[in-house]
Nucleic acid binder design. Structure first.
Length: 129
DNA sequence: GTTCTAACA
DNA sequence: TGTTAGAA
């Protein structure tokens, strides 16, 4: 099938599919015309890629993990034992990212709270934006 | 009408 | 990632 059909059947865009190929997540063959030719199993692969992307994994990690994943109906299930460590490591990365964002929010909250102080009365210093 | 590559107010 | 231009 060509890129348009795969995009339709996976709820993605052609742009995304070309990007996945660029990241070596998909290896579609080429027709003499230059058009990409996808196989039936690519439908499932693309769905798995999207699930992993939604889990916050980057394309490099997805490339490593993808071949070790088997789908059980709707669920993606790890098929290799070493996989759990990679996934747990990524979970830590997400936890750190969350901590950083929470710290940023605390700083912003402090600034917002300052809006009520006397120093905030210098309206002449405010630019219309 | 569909896809391709390349590039970015 | 969206979008678009220009070509096949």
């Amino acid at each position: 099938m060509r890129i348009g059909e795969l995009a339709r059947r996976t709820g993605t865009t052609e742009r995304a599919l070309r990007y996945y190929e660029e990241q070596d997540l998909l290896r579609p063959a080429r027709r003499p015309s230059g058009y990409r030719e996808y196989v039936e199993t690519d439908v499932r692969t693309v769905r798995n890629i999207r699930t992993l992307l939604a889990a916050g994994l980057n394309t490099v990690t997805i490339g490593e993990v993808l071949p070790c994943m088997v789908t059980d109906g709707e669920a993606l299930v790890p098929a290799c034992p070493e996989l759990s460590t990679v996934l747990l490591q990524d979970r830590e990365r997400l936890t750190e990212a969350i901590d950083d964002l929470q710290a940023a929010r605390r700083v912003l909250d402090a600034i917002i709270a300052g809006a009520g102080s006397p120093a905030a009365r210098r309206v002449d210093a405010c630019q219309p934006a």
